[in-house]
C-alpha cells in the first residue's frame, strides 16, 4: 500500500470527491483534478466509465454514457493519470466495474500480450494510482483482484453494508486503506450506518468512509461527523452535467465549500 493512501486521513476528516473520467472529455477531467487538488481534496476517486453501471443511480449512469460517447477509453485514462502524476501527489483511486479490469487489453499490445486483471493493475500502479474500488466485487470475490493489487502496492478497497456481525468482521479484517461503508435499503438507513461504523471500530482501527449524498441534510451531517472520510458520489458529476467543459472553477469552489463544511462538523 502506498504512503499516499496513509496520508489521506492524517489531516482531520477527509473529503473524497468522485468524478467520471471523460465527462465530457479527458482534458476537462484533468483540469478538474487539478482544481480539486488545489481546493484541498484529500483523495480523488476517478471513475472509469462502464457501459452498464448496474450499481449507479441516474446521475452517474448519465455521466458514464456521456464519457463513453465522448470517446473515453481505459488506455486514454491511464495516459491522463500519468500526466496528472507529473503535477500532483494527491492520492488517487480508480472506481469502475469488474469487467473493465478483467477484460482489459492494452491497445496495440497484440494477442500474445496477456491482458486482464494483472495487466490493468500493473498499468494502474505504474501510472500512480493508489487504490481500486469495484462496486460489483463483494468480499467473496475479492481475491482475484486483491492479490494482484497487493503485489503492486495498490489498496483494494472493500465495501461494507449493514449485515450480520460475522460478515462485517470478515470484511474489516481483510480491508486495506479504508472501509467504504454503503447503506442498506430500508427505513432505518442512517441508524444502520451508525451501527455499522461502531461495529467496524470495535473490530479494528481503520478509517471509515461514507458517501452521504443519498441522505437528507441533517442525517448526512451526523453521518459525516461519525465518519473518517466523506465521499461525494454525485456532487462533482452534477456540476459536470451542468457546466460541461467549463466546470473546473465551479468544482474548485464546491470542493472548497465541502471541505470547510466537513471540517467544522
Amino acid at each position: 500500500m502506498s504512503n499516499r493512501i496513509r496520508s489521506v486521513f492524517e489531516n482531520g476528516k477527509a473529503f473524497l470527491p468522485f468524478i467520471t473520467c471523460g465527462d465530457p472529455s479527458l482534458e476537462a477531467t484533468e483540469e478538474m483534478v487539478y482544481a480539486m487538488a488545489e481546493a484541498q481534496a484529500d483523495l480523488i476517486v476517478l471513475g472509469i466509465p462502464f457501459s452498464d453501471p448496474t450499481a449507479e443511480g441516474p446521475v452517474i449512469q448519465a455521466a458514464n454514457a456521456r464519457a463513453l460517447t465522448g470517446g473515453a477509453t481505459t488506455d486514454g485514462i491511464f495516459a491522463m493519470v500519468e500526466r496528472i502524476r507529473r503535477h500532483t501527489v494527491i492520492p488517487l483511486a480508480f472506481m469502475t466495474y469488474a469487467n473493465v479490469v478483467f477484460s482489459y487489453r492494452q491497445k496495440g499490445a497484440g494477442e500474445e500480450q496477456p491482458g486482464g486483471i494483472r495487466a490493468f493493475i500493473r498499468r494502474a500502479a505504474g501510472a500512480g494510482v493508489d487504490a481500486l474500488i469495484l462496486p460489483d466485487v463483494p468480499f467473496e470475490e475479492r481475491e482475484e483482484f486483491a492479490l494482484p493489487c497487493r503485489e503492486n502496492g495498490i489498496a483494494f478497497i472493500l465495501q461494507a453494508a449493514p449485515a450480520p456481525g460475522e460478515r462485517i468482521s470478515g470484511i474489516v479484517q481483510a480491508a486495506e486503506g479504508f472501509v467504504y461503508c454503503v447503506p442498506a435499503p430500508g427505513v432505518r438507513r442512517t441508524e444502520g450506518m451508525e451501527v455499522l461504523v461502531r461495529q467496524i471500530r470495535q473490530e479494528r482501527e481503520i478509517p471509515c468512509v461514507i458517501d452521504t449524498g443519498s441522505f437528507p441534510r441533517s442525517e448526512a451531517d451526523s453521518l459525516a461527523r461519525l465518519a473518517d472520510g466523506v465521499m461525494a458520489g454525485t456532487g462533482v458529476v452534477e456540476l459536470c452535467q451542468r457546466y460541461g467543459k467549463g466546470s473546473a472553477s465551479h468544482v474548485r469552489d464546491y470542493v472548497r465549500r465541502k471541505k470547510e463544511a466537513i471540517g467544522i462538523l
Binding site: 470475490e141 449485515a163 460478515r167 435499503p185
Partner: peptide, 21 residues
C-alpha cells in the same frame, strides 16, 4: 473461489448491498 461455480464461470459479482439478499 466463491460459491456457485461451473468450472471458472458463475460466482457472485454484485454490490455488497445485495449480498444479504
Amino acid at each position: 473461489m466463491s460459491k456457485g461455480r461451473f468450472g471458472i464461470h458463475g460466482g457472485q459479482y454484485i454490490p455488497e448491498t445485495l449480498m444479504n439478499a
